[in-house]
Design a protein around this nucleic acid. Structure first.
Lengths: 131, 131
DNA sequence: ATGCATTCAATGCACAAGCATTTAATGCGT
DNA sequence: ACGCATTAAATGCTTGTGCATTGAATGCAT
């Protein structure tokens, strides 16, 4: 693979990412008052509920999958809590840790936003050569 | 293509983009005191020099290709000018417009940073399935 | 020529992100 | 038991970004 090819792949990747994020941001914000990262975190929490019995998450566990710094994630969760979409609670076994759980409002908001996200992603990705 | 497949492609794309940008940012900053977007703009200017006789660019022309808002681009160019890497000059035929031109320092800085960028991109993209 | 909508770029403002630091809790070695 | 390095999460601070607005220049219609 030549440098020129690598560069062209990178530009394609970058352009596609920018276009999708831009669309997602606008649609999620306009229709559901959610940023892309906010939705992403809710999404992980919903997925997690299916996997773990209690539906609790350490903040740190959320960091994987959402591409944000620790501080950004901390503030993002604070925003979600303020909006009533998640709850933060101490965890008993390690009192440094914080559990994050979805509220009913959070579950509802996510389920409302999910079709929007799916639609935007499908519009961009469904019928393309490299997916 | 199922929703699940679309989602998985999106996560792959997103993760790859985040990893590359993060690496690029660190390497370009540490070695050359350039952000990713700053380098990208210099890169476009260098390419443009090859194509146009005078090497002048309207700010607006730069916007295409660099995925930034008009205001972000305006400030970015201001930063580059302050760093001595580009010059801004009025254009005579339409005095609303601004020409941006590389300085020698800008050309040098770009040529120093180019191998770093190429290396990072190659490390991430060279030997992968979908490129 | 005049008025008015349009375009280019810069700027005020609000906000989100990262880095570095802080606070609190844990665990390990002695 | 005590000190010390380590870890989890929050916070102060700086910076970059986008939206909306502004200021200036253009062009088009009348």
């Amino acid at each position: 693979m030549t440098d020129h090819e690598v560069l062209s792949v990178w530009r394609e990747l970058s352009a596609r990412h920018a276009a999708i994020v831009s669309d997602l941001e606008r649609e999620l914000q306009d229709r559901h008052e959610l940023g892309v990262s906010e939705f992403e975190v809710l999404d992980r929490l919903v997925e997690g509920v299916c996997l773990s019995a209690d539906g609790k998450f350490r903040v740190q566990e959320l960091a994987a999958g959402v591409h944000l710094s620790q501080s950004a994630l901390s503030r993002l969760i604070a925003r979600l809590e303020k909006a009533g979409l998640v709850l933060r609670s101490m965890c008993a076994d390690d009192r440094r840790g914080v559990f994050v759980t979805l509220t009913d409002a959070g579950r509802i908001r996510h389920s409302e936003a999910l079709p929007t996200q799916r639609r935007v992603l499908r519009d961009h990705l469904a019928a393309t050569p490299q997916g």
